[in-house]
Simulated scan of single mutants.
Amino acid sequence: MNASERDRLSRLWEEHMRTPFPANMRRREIEGEDMVYLDASIAVGVSSSLSEPFDEERRAALLSCLAAVEKVLPLIDDEGGANEHYERLRAMAALAVEIGNAGPR
């Protein structure tokens, strides 16, 4: 992974941390996915990828979350910025997986 991809992930992460969780996604499940849990799971994987080497277990968990967010994205309405929120989560998860694929830093 090059520095610009890492910088992009860092910027997306900072934006994510500043943005409130969409209220309409609390206590909501779409296609069997708990939307709060999905947000938190991706956040843990992204945060880990920015701070320490990525192991296979974390990479697999993040790939599972990436598949889940891609499954639910077409079903999310944009009320309260929910679509943008989960699009950003998808982008961060994909970049974090790429960081993990790049091996140790």
Rank of each mutant, 00 (worst) to 15 (best):
V46N: 07
N24F: 10
A60C: 01
V36N: 03
S51Q: 14
E29S: 12
E52L: 12
H85Y: 15
L50P: 08
Y37E: 13
P53I: 05
I76L: 14
A23R: 10
R58M: 13
I42S: 00
E70W: 00
G80E: 00
R58V: 08
M35P: 02
S49L: 01
L89I: 07
F21M: 04
N83R: 13
N83F: 07
L66E: 05
A61K: 15
A67P: 02
F54C: 12
R18E: 15
R58T: 11
S47C: 12
P22F: 03
I42E: 01
A82V: 02
S49W: 01
L89R: 06
M25K: 10
E56H: 08
L62G: 02
V36F: 05
R26S: 06
Y86E: 11
G81Y: 01
D39R: 03
I30K: 04
M25E: 03
P74W: 03
I30S: 03
I76V: 10
A68P: 04
D55R: 06
N83H: 13
P53V: 10
E29D: 11
D78P: 02
I30E: 10
V72D: 05
E31G: 08
E84M: 01
N83V: 14
M35K: 03
A40Y: 11
V72R: 06
M35A: 02
E52C: 08
P20W: 12
A43Q: 14
R88H: 06
M35Q: 03
Y86W: 14
L75G: 00
L66Y: 07
D39S: 13
I30W: 03
A61I: 06
A23L: 11
F21V: 08
R26A: 06
A43Y: 11
D77S: 14
D78K: 01
S64W: 01
S41Q: 11
V36R: 09
P20H: 09
V44F: 15
V46Y: 04
E29R: 09
P22D: 04
P53M: 08
P53T: 10
I76R: 00
E15F: 05
R58L: 13
A82M: 05
M17C: 11
E87F: 00
S51A: 12
V44S: 12
V46S: 05
M35H: 02
L66S: 09
R26I: 06
R26Q: 06
E52Y: 12
E57C: 05
F21N: 04
D55N: 15
E31W: 07
Y86N: 13
S48W: 07
E33N: 08
R26C: 00
I42G: 03
S47M: 13
G80Q: 01
F54T: 12
A61M: 12
S64D: 09
E56G: 03
E70D: 15
E52K: 14
A61L: 15
I42M: 05
R59V: 09
V36K: 02
A23D: 11
S41A: 15
I30N: 03
K71D: 10
M17I: 05
L66R: 08
A60V: 07
A40S: 15
R28D: 01
E33R: 13
I76D: 00
E79C: 02
R28V: 03
R28G: 01
S41T: 13
V44T: 14
P53G: 08
G81C: 01
R28K: 14
D55V: 09
S41R: 13
E79Q: 03
Y37G: 04
P74L: 05
N83A: 13
A61T: 11
S51T: 13
N24I: 15
G45P: 15
R59F: 05
V69C: 10
